[in-house]
């Protein structure tokens, strides 16, 4: 009996060791990134535990380098991802409210269409047609092209409508008797009550826009309109990365940081979000 419990104990320890090993494999590239960004280019390939050579040189160079348009790119990224997130939250909430709480003609058709849209992501070719549309509208190199094609999310409407269904109708009725308008109901009652859903949709939308490469590379050609992701890609592809690894790493740290901060604040929502379809279709 005793030897068996020792055996179980040992297996338990091995399991935890393996789990922590994978954790380390997951975290190591970030450590490598952080320390790499704090090194002079000539020390770049030294051990990550070589703390003596650390300096903020690369960050200074990154701000100074005109080619990178760093501040502008950071602003573009924040503005685009922020605007899309706010718009998606707004439109998803009001549309979700209409299809879950209002009785109107044609409601079931719209509700079914949104579910169809969520499940059937599309032909996968649609973005090419939208790209052509952007070109014919002469909208290349504009915030319009980066923001407007992503304003709505069937997943978001679905999430909000499912959540709103759990809020009792009596609450809405009484607010109406008090003279509250429909928008008042949405923004004073429904949204404050569904902060968790809003957080899930918000973080996933922000992450998707912040990390997007394919679409922004298609519609943005001018350096001053590039997002952070794109300007780093552009700089590396232009051959800038070869002799300035520290600078690239510094910029990549800034590219990673906002999502890391969001994740630390909203980690629960991220984890819940992936089990209800987040990051899959948006």
């Amino acid at each position: 009996m005793k030897s068996k419990s020792i055996q179980v104990n040992l297996i338990g320890k091995i399991v935890i060791f393996l789990l922590l090993l994978w954790s380390f494999i997951n975290i190591y590239p970030y450590l490598y990134l952080m320390t790499g960004s704090l090194k002079q280019d000539r020390d770049f390939y030294t051990s990550i535990f070589n703390f003596k050579v650390l300096t903020f040189d690369s960050y200074e160079k990154m701000f100074a380098l005109e080619e990178l348009h760093f501040i502008r790119a950071l602003f573009n990224s924040l503005f685009v991802a922020g605007a899309v997130t706010l718009a998606t939250l707004f439109f998803s909430a009001i549309t979700g409210y209409a299809i879950s709480k209002l009785d109107f003609k044609g409601k079931s058709f719209i509700a079914n269409f949104i579910i169809f849209q969520w499940i059937f992501t599309g032909t996968g070719v649609g973005f090419i047609v939208v790209f052509k549309l952007m070109v014919s509208l002469d909208m290349l190199n504009s915030y319009f092209a980066l923001i407007v094609p992503f304003l709505m999310s069937a997943w978001g409407v679905f999430l909000f409508s499912q959540y709103f269904k759990t809020i009792p109708m009596a609450l809405i009725e009484s607010a109406r008797i008090e003279g509250c308008s429909e928008f008042g109901i949405i923004f004073r009652i429904m949204i404050p009550m569904s902060k968790s859903v809003a957080a899930i949709l918000g973080v996933f939308t922000f992450m998707q826009r912040w990390n997007d490469l394919l679409w922004s590379i298609l519609v943005i050609r001018k350096p001053h309109m590039m997002t952070l992701n794109l300007t780093i890609a552009n700089f590396v592809l232009g051959g800038g990365g070869g002799d300035k690894p520290g600078l690239i790493f510094a910029a990549t740290v800034i590219l990673t940081l906002p999502l890391l901060i969001l994740f630390i604040i909203y980690r629960k929502q991220f984890i819940t979000g992936i089990s209800i379809g987040g990051g899959i279709k948006l």
Partner: peptide, 21 residues
Amino acid sequence: ISYFLPNLTAGVAYSVIFQKL
């Protein structure tokens, strides 16, 4: 939390890291 971390990162960011790794 640590298992979710890689999923957070942009393709550009982790490509840059792995290029050096």
